[in-house]
Each structure stands twice: as structure tokens, then as C-alpha cells.
């Protein structure tokens, strides 16, 4: 292909576009501007980490993209179409697992599938079984939620979010409450699953190293009001090891940057 025809070829629209989005909440001491003119572009198959301190509007942004809340201003598009409500093309893994305690692990994974048209009982079971296997929980299909450890619960939540086969996966600090060992195992598994299932992932965290291990790109946010700041492309080879020196060095750089911005952001 010549350079000219490459230039003229239609630009593939990004998978997810957030443009000029603002959202405020009424608070006790006046309105809180949770998001202020936020822009974000995520392309197909990209793994983006949104990194920021507590209260900078990360969860708010995910709710808006998920269609659970409406923005005050701006627009959100997936595949070029505006988001008007929740949809199976965007699944969420919530900050706390949010699993349904009245259902087994299998029952939780089946929930979204039961709402999907054109799947009969056997097909649903087969799909759910596949995803439980993918997250390594085949043996626990029949377990009650309270019988599972924190890490296993997050695995079920991941399987439940993957099962309806969304193209975008929204993850809200899914591993924040887990111990380091469990988390490290999950980083490996998540990258493997991401590679296998070709998802576009927006992953929210306040853990710098976590972002460095997982992301293709890290976007920094600052609080009060919540704003998008600089972003870092991370081109380290995968699978990455959270204890490796290159990750640590990168994390130090990003932390410095974040600190510098924090001073500037909070006035």
C-alpha cells in the first residue's frame, strides 16, 4: 500500500470514546464535581488502566460508560454509537464482587446468559462451564458464594462478566481487597484471558504497579474535580512480572508524576 492510500483509508473508529464528559453529585457541602470534561479514547483490544487517588471519579466514569448513570454533559460512544443505557457489549466487574449470594458460582455465571436470547438451557450451561474453567473454578461450580475465598469470588465475578461475551470489559479495582499473593496470580490469569478472549479492557485502580503490569496504556487522573491528565504507553513485553526491575522503575516514574500533579490538582 502506498503512503497516500494509507492516508486516505478510513480511520477505524476507536472502540470506546469519552468526550467532554462531566458529572456532578449533590453533596452535603455543595455539589461535588466528580468528573470535569473528561476525554478518553480506547481502541479495539486495548488494555487501559485508569490510575488515580481515591475520590477522583474512577468509579463514576465506569458507571457512565456502563450506562448505569447518565452524564451531565458530553458524550460516550462505543463502536461509534452513543451509550444510552446498560448493554451486554459492556460488562462490569464491580469494586466489591457483587455476586448474588442466593445463587451458586455456576448460577451467578448463568445469570447474564439467561437474559441472552437464542440460548437454550444446554448451551447456557456449556458457556458458563467454559468460563468457570477459564478462571480456574471448574471444581467449584456448585459452591455457595460464602464458601469461596475473596480471590475465588473475584474469579467468579470475572467469569460472570465475561460470559455474555462483551466487547468491552470495565473493571473497578477488582483486586484491591485481595492479598498480594492472590493478586499476583490473578494478574497473570487476567492477562492470559485478555489475550485469549481479545477484550477491550478499561481497568480502574489506585495501585501504580498493578497498572504497570496490566496496561498497554496508563491514564492518570487527579481528584477535585476529577480530571484526566497525562497518559503513558507501556511497551514492555508480556507476561510481565510485578516484581521485575523494569516494572518497579516505571512505577516510580509514574508515582512521581502523579505526586507532582496532585500538588497542582488540589487547590
Amino acid at each position: 500500500m502506498t503512503e497516500v492510500s494509507q492516508e486516505l483509508a478510513p480511520v477505524s473508529p476507536s472502540k470506546l470514546t469519552v468526550r467532554g464528559v462531566s458529572k456532578s453529585f449533590p453533596g452535603r457541602s455543595g455539589t461535588v464535581l466528580a468528573l470535569d470534561e473528561v476525554d478518553l479514547e480506547v481502541s479495539e483490544g486495548e488494555f487501559v488502566c485508569i490510575l488515580g487517588a481515591s475520590g477522583c471519579g474512577k468509579s463514576t466514569l465506569l458507571s457512565l460508560v456502563a450506562g448505569l448513570d447518565a452524564a451531565d454533559k458530553g458524550e460516550i460512544l462505543t463502536d461509534g454509537r452513543p451509550v444510552v443505557g446498560p448493554g451486554r457489549d459492556r460488562m462490569v466487574m464491580f469494586q466489591d464482587a457483587a455476586l448474588f449470594p442466593w445463587r451458586t458460582a455456576m448460577g451467578n455465571v448463568l445469570f447474564g446468559l439467561e437474559l441472552k436470547p437464542n440460548l437454550d438451557r444446554a448451551a447456557r450451561r456449556e458457556v458458563a462451564t467454559y468460563y468457570l474453567g477459564l478462571v480456574g473454578l471448574s471444581r467449584f461450580a456448585g459452591a455457595s458464594i460464602h464458601e469461596l475465598s475473596g480471590g475465588m469470588r473475584q474469579r467468579v465475578a470475572l467469569a460472570r462478566a465475561l460470559a455474555p461475551n462483551p466487547s468491552v470489559l470495565l473493571m473497578d479495582e477488582p483486586f484491591a481487597a485481595l492479598d498480594a499473593m492472590t493478586r499476583e496470580k490473578l494478574y497473570g490469569d487476567l492477562q492470559e484471558i485478555w489475550r485469549k478472549r481479545r477484550k477491550t479492557i478499561v481497568f480502574v485502580t489506585h495501585n501504580v504497579r498493578e497498572a504497570c503490569v496490566l496496561a498497554d496504556r496508563v491514564v492518570l487522573m487527579t481528584p477535585h474535580p476529577g480530571r484526566m491528565r497525562s497518559s503513558f504507553d507501556i511497551e514492555l513485553p508480556r507476561p510481565r512480572d510485578i516484581n521485575a526491575e523494569n516494572i518497579a522503575a516505571l512505577a516510580r516514574r509514574i508515582s512521581k508524576k502523579l505526586e507532582a500533579m496532585g500538588g497542582e490538582g488540589s487547590t
Binding site: L68, R88, V92, F94, L115, P164
Partner: peptide, 8 residues
């Protein structure tokens, strides 16, 4: 919220 994202 979880149920809504799954289409309930």
C-alpha cells in the same frame, strides 16, 4: 446495578 448491566 450488576443485574442491570447483565440486561435484567
Amino acid at each position: 446495578r450488576a443485574a442491570r448491566t447483565m440486561g435484567s
